[in-house]
């Protein structure tokens, strides 16, 4: 992905490490690297979050705008995911270089949030068939150190948790025109229900084993990787094989169990972190860290 060059000997070293359940940074196969999470860091966005997963850095901003619902779904709002693989992360992304990866991530996110059980778009409706909220979820990849899918999904879920949608006070239909009155108080907002929203878990197969949270070097050694989108309750919202290589059906079935198990734990950890962040923000003077520490 990021164009890491590894020799055969280095690859064998990583492979042997995975075999003996001790990776070259000291983790076991199912350990994540330390994750940093910060909420509400962009003032102009309705919700924002930054996730740093060791060397992977992702910034997500959510903007809300008013739009007309789709004619086939008159009572639903809209949500769109945009991924920007900026050349800041790696020169490979320069020009159209990051486009394929960006569409892959944004499409996968869209299909994982598509189920109405995870994200009920009906809550974003203002007037049926006439007006609705549209959420623009913009994902900026600042640094790319492996395991982009997981980091992006954590940041997206956190940013959506942080999103404040302004409350509509009155709606009047004047002829064919809609007259919206929003609350004058900028803090008079409601928040989205993120309980059932999924997190993504990438499992990479190195040798005979699956590992979570692979570094860029490990991604280079992996023959096949699977991305799962798992909700809090252990349900699968989306699943896709993302790299070159194929898997035996038995291996796939085993990976399924591991993926769901890891996903449930990841969701739990994120929920705790979000609650902690909320408490910190609610305190009178929230301690401000540097934007990019």
């Amino acid at each position: 992905m990021a164009g890491v060059l590894l020799s055969e000997a280095e690859k064998t070293f990583i492979l042997h490490g995975v075999q003996s359940d001790l990776r070259n940074d000291g983790r076991s196969r199912q350990d994540y690297r330390p994750i940093e999470l910060e909420l509400d860091i962009v003032t102009h966005a309705n919700g924002s979050a930054r996730v740093r997963l060791a060397n992977t850095d992702v910034l997500v901003g959510v903007k809300t705008e008013i739009d007309v619902p789709k004619p086939e779904k008159p009572e639903e709002g809209k949500v769109e995911f945009f991924v920007d693989c900026s050349a800041n992360a790696t020169p490979v992304f320069e020009g159209k270089g990051g486009e394929e990866l960006a569409t892959e991530i944004s499409n996968f996110l869209a299909s994982s949030f598509a189920s109405s059980m995870s994200f009920d778009l009906k809550t974003l409706c203002i007037i049926k068939g006439v007006q609705c909220w549209k959420l623009y979820v913009d994902i900026l990849i600042l640094e790319c150190g492996g395991n982009l899918f997981d980091a992006v999904s954590l940041a997206v879920k956190a940013a959506l948790h942080n999103t404040m949608v302004p409350r509509v006070e009155t709606v009047a239909m004047d002829g064919g025109n809609v007259d919206l009155q929003l609350s004058g108080d900028p803090y008079d907002c409601w928040r989205l229900d993120t309980k059932n929203m999924p997190c993504l878990v990438t499992l990479s197969k190195i040798g005979e084993h699956f590992i979570v949270d692979s570094t860029a070097e490990e991604e280079e050694c992996s023959m096949a990787s699977l991305v799962f989108s798992v909700t809090d309750g252990g349900r699968l919202n989306s699943l896709c094989k993302t790299s070159v290589g194929s898997l035996h059906p038995h291996t796939l079935a085993e990976a399924l169990k591991v993926g769901v198990d890891v996903g449930v734990r990841l969701n739990k950890a994120l929920d705790q972190a979000l609650a902690r962040e909320d408490r910190r923000l609610e305190a009178d003077k929230p301690e401000r860290f540097g934007f990019l520490k």
Partner: peptide, 27 residues
């Protein structure tokens, strides 16, 4: 699927379902 090698080359799932349901469908 690659039939002669019994290798799954792609699996793509959308919606929302339990892992047991997915592995059942896979077989």
């Amino acid at each position: 699927l690659m039939g002669a090698h019994t290798q799954v080359t792609q699996m793509w799932q959308t919606g929302s379902m339990t892992a047991a349901c997915v592995s059942d469908a896979l077989t």
